[in-house]
């Protein structure tokens, strides 16, 4: 009655050469292409090399480390078909809390006069904890009320900025202990970024955490029917993202050695741009850390390249804008092809 075995549908077609390449090859080529354009323009316009200048590359990566850490955080949220607009604001508030606990005793108007010269582990943990707490609030509001993440995190974007202003009465927090400068010095921002990227690469690819994140982003109903605690997982993912914003705030504050309520303004947009340019789908379900890293490098290369050529900075935003839209258009076409 039953055939021993048979194949459904059309037999799998031979994989084309394109499909056999690593998944991030396309976006990597964009990065290489952009760098090559700056290199060629460099020879003609300023008669210098763009790529083969180690110091420039290092500064570029250093400047992108903070956005990179934010991008990893918001990237996993986008994979889950969510969005988080509050990264920059949470970074601002977490940074100001951390800074207020890292002030040296020489500064007379410290936020907590009795708490100066604490071991730096306290401000570091406080910054991460504040970030995680606000992320937890984001996740809880989204999971419990089921309002769109766009609105919930827009609220947090405004509220966290207000919190930061309230916390210091609008004043700047400066004169941090020398020890606190470590996280922003030398290659530490880059190392921190790479560690965060490595940890989240492993989490997303090899653990239940990642599997659930992709599953919810791919088909939330399927995830729920399969017995995944969708609400709980959403709260966890937003909390993890908040913790990453906290880590980014430590790097930022440590580099600047000062914090104010406006710190990190609009950084969430650069982070989301990097994620989207790096090939993560705004529809959810698809995206990788490696792509996000390349997306971050593309943004950095653009900024660095425009400065290198002496072109006015505001042109960068035009190019960035075009790139973001192009990335989403490309993803939309991919999405249609899968659906067809």
């Amino acid at each position: 009655m039953i055939n021993s075995s048979s194949t459904l549908g059309s037999a799998e077609t031979q994989k084309s050469l394109l499909q056999r390449l690593p998944k991030d090859t396309g976006i990597l080529l964009v990065l290489v292409g952009i760098a090559a354009i700056f290199e060629v323009l460099g020879w003609f316009v300023v008669e210098q090399t763009f790529i083969f200048n180690g110091q420039r590359l290092f500064i570029m990566i250093l400047q992108m480390a903070i956005i990179g850490i934010l991008a990893i955080g918001v990237g996993q949220i986008i994979i889950m078909a969510g969005i988080d607009l509050s990264g920059g604001s949470i970074l601002g508030f977490a940074g100001i809390v951390a800074a207020s606990l890292a002030q040296s005793s020489e500064y007379a108007r410290a936020v907590y006069p009795g708490l100066t010269d604490l071991p730096i582990i306290f401000p570091v943990l406080a910054g991460i904890a504040v970030g995680a707490l606000l992320g937890f609030v984001n996740g809880s509001v989204i999971a419990i009320t089921a309002i769109p993440p766009f609105i919930a995190t827009l609220g947090m974007l405004v509220a966290a900025r207000g919190l930061a202003r309230w916390y210091t009465s609008g004043k700047q927090v400066s004169f941090l202990t020398e020890d606190f400068a470590i996280f922003g010095s030398g290659a530490w921002p880059v190392i921190t970024f790479l560690i965060v990227a490595g940890v989240f690469h492993v989490l997303l690819k090899y653990t239940v955490y990642g599997r659930r994140t992709y599953a919810i982003g791919s088909n939330e109903d399927a995830a729920r029917v399969a017995g995944i605690a969708v609400k709980r997982h959403k709260i966890l993912v937003y909390t993890m993202a908040g913790a990453l914003y906290g880590i980014a705030s430590i790097v930022q504050t440590s580099r600047a050695m000062t914090a104010q309520s406006g710190t990190g303004l609009m950084l969430e947009l650069d982070a989301i741009s990097a994620v989207v340019i790096g090939g993560t789908s705004l529809f959810g379900g698809r995206g990788r850390i490696m792509g996000t890293i390349i997306g971050v490098l593309i943004l950095g290369t653009l900024t660095s390249g425009f400065t290198f050529l002496g072109i006015d900075v505001y042109y960068i935003n035009i190019v960035k804008g075009v790139l973001i839209v192009a990335a989403v258009v490309a993803d939309t076409y991919r999405q249609k092809r899968v659906a067809a």
Partner: peptide
């Protein structure tokens, strides 16, 4: 879940793990 492969779909919500660390 369309973006996941066959084993991931079959084991969705009851993944086989090496040792239990909750979501991690």
């Amino acid at each position: 879940a369309n973006d996941l492969d066959v084993p991931a779909n079959i084991f969705l919500g009851r993944e086989e793990v090496y040792f239990n660390l909750g979501p991690f």
